[in-house]
């Protein structure tokens, strides 16, 4: 899978990265316009003019971008590039969400995922520096990789063919407020109240865990 990798070091590849960033920047207004297409009102309006199904087109475009982004993410040799492509993918995913009338989730996706989490990633990539050091690898050897790929292909084939056949044929009609902050809040603070609270424990664990892991031993501290 490393066939697509480029040997040139990061510093000389700036132009590519900036163009990627520009693409991401372009995506943002596109997303904004899709909101207009994808809202139920727009869908209702679209009924009068069935020639153009805005949500479906949004889905096609962003779906394609998602897959492209994901492919590029997992094939880049340089983690920085991969991270940027991941950001790209996450943006595109947000677009798909919009086509599903999940406006709040789309916003969260951009804010939290593409924003916060990816910043974390980029931070670590930069901190660790030399990419050669980051080799780890779960699977070793060509054979096990081939076997794993075969297994994944099998799973994928089964899964996708199943999903094609078994997916609910007809989506429910949804009301205006579906997917909005309001409706989300209704769920989160009623039925999901306890998980919503409990997830704070999870985040606390993450914080404490990060602190514990990155502490140095007392001796080491003395030396430093």
């Amino acid at each position: 899978m490393d066939l697509l990798s480029q040997k040139t070091p990061l510093s000389q590849r700036r132009p590519f990265i900036s163009s990627l960033m520009a693409t991401i920047a372009l995506l943002v207004p596109w997303l904004a316009t899709s909101v207009a297409w994808a809202t139920p009102q727009a869908a209702a309006a679209a009924k009068t003019a069935p020639a153009f199904n805005g949500a479906l087109w949004t889905f096609y475009i962003f779906g394609a971008l998602t897959i492209a982004g994901a492919l590029l993410t997992i094939t880049r040799r340089n983690p920085v590039t991969a991270a940027l492509w991941l950001v790209f993918t996450l943006f595109a995913t947000a677009g798909v969400y919009l086509s599903l009338h999940a406006t709040f989730m789309a916003a969260i996706q951009v804010l939290v995922y593409a924003g916060a989490i990816m910043v974390l990633f980029m931070f670590v990539v930069m901190m660790v520096g030399n990419t050669e050091r980051q080799e780890f690898g779960i699977m070793r050897g060509l054979f096990s990789k081939v076997v794993a790929l075969g297994a994944i292909a099998l799973l994928g084939w089964r899964l996708i063919s199943l999903l094609m056949r078994q997916a609910p044929a007809k989506a429910a009609m949804v009301s205006d407020g579906y997917g909005s902050v309001h409706s989300m809040g209704g769920v989160l603070f009623r039925e999901y109240l306890f998980p919503f609270e409990a997830i704070s424990v999870l985040l606390l664990v993450a914080i404490v865990g990060a602190v514990v892991i990155s502490r140095r031993s007392t001796e080491e501290k003395e030396e430093v």
């Binding site: 664990v205 404490v208 514990v212 892991i213 502490r215 140095r216 031993s217 080491e220």
Partner: peptide
């Protein structure tokens, strides 16, 4: 985190 908590 606990598994990785052994400093150094």
């Amino acid at each position: 985190a606990l598994v990785a908590s052994w400093p150094g």
